[in-house]
């Protein structure tokens, strides 16, 4: 039942959101086509700005993997992580995710490209990327903007939330798509 609901949400989410946004916009008298084009111009430049992040991460991970260093790391960590059903390949993502949004997007893309979007690792990386945040960036930026120097428990909460998002992702992907 729960799994069926998750699958249904996945199937319907995008079409429903597209329809809702366009129909509501039209109903409210927005010139949908012109407004779309205006926004899409910005979107194009967002993609361009991602390129340097992608190159930095693809190159670092490419070297790390093809040199055999990744295999060393995997054989060292696999027994421990295997107990929890976590493939060691996603470890770089877990480490970089709280630090850099662009970097994490790079790692996720690289994993998806290397292992395939519909592989266990591909699905897991996708879910982790969507359910965790760039905690350090948000804290620094938000607190910095108003001059807060003592952030109290905010960092601990943010990082523990990322850890639980990561574990929940492992759990959900194992349950819905079956283990890797």
């Amino acid at each position: 039942m729960f799994l069926e609901v998750m699958a249904a949400v996945s199937r319907w989410a995008v079409p429903v959101v597209i329809t809702l946004i366009l129909a509501y916009g039209f109903w409210k008298g927005v010139r949908v086509y012109e407004t779309f084009i205006e926004g899409a111009q910005e979107g194009f430049w967002i993609a361009v700005k991602i390129i340097p992040y992608m190159v930095a991460i693809f190159v670092a991970l490419g070297i790390f993997r093809q040199s055999g260093a990744m295999d060393l790391m995997i054989s060292a960590l696999a027994p421990i992580l295997g107990l929890a059903g976590i493939p060691p390949e996603v470890l770089p993502l877990a480490i970089i995710r709280p630090l850099s949004g662009g970097g994490a997007l790079g790692v996720t893309s690289e994993l998806i490209r290397t292992y395939g979007p519909d592989s266990f690792i591909g699905r897991l990386a996708s879910t982790i990327q969507g359910s965790t945040e760039t905690t350090f960036f948000i804290l620094t930026f938000y607190f910095g903007s108003v001059g807060i120097r003592r952030s109290r428990h905010a960092l601990a909460v943010g990082l523990l939330a990322d850890v639980s998002g990561f574990l929940a992702a492992v759990l959900a992907v194992n349950a819905v798509f079956g283990g890797g």
Binding site: M6, A13, I112, S131
Partner: peptide, 28 residues
């Protein structure tokens, strides 16, 4: 990203993502 990599169903991870992100928000 998934669509660009040629996934058969790019949006199939929406359900698992909403589940995981709800867990992390609840914990937070």
């Amino acid at each position: 990203i998934r669509a660009a990599a040629g996934s058969a169903d790019p949006a199939e991870i929406v359900g698992t993502t909403i589940f995981a992100t709800s867990c992390s928000t609840l914990v937070a």
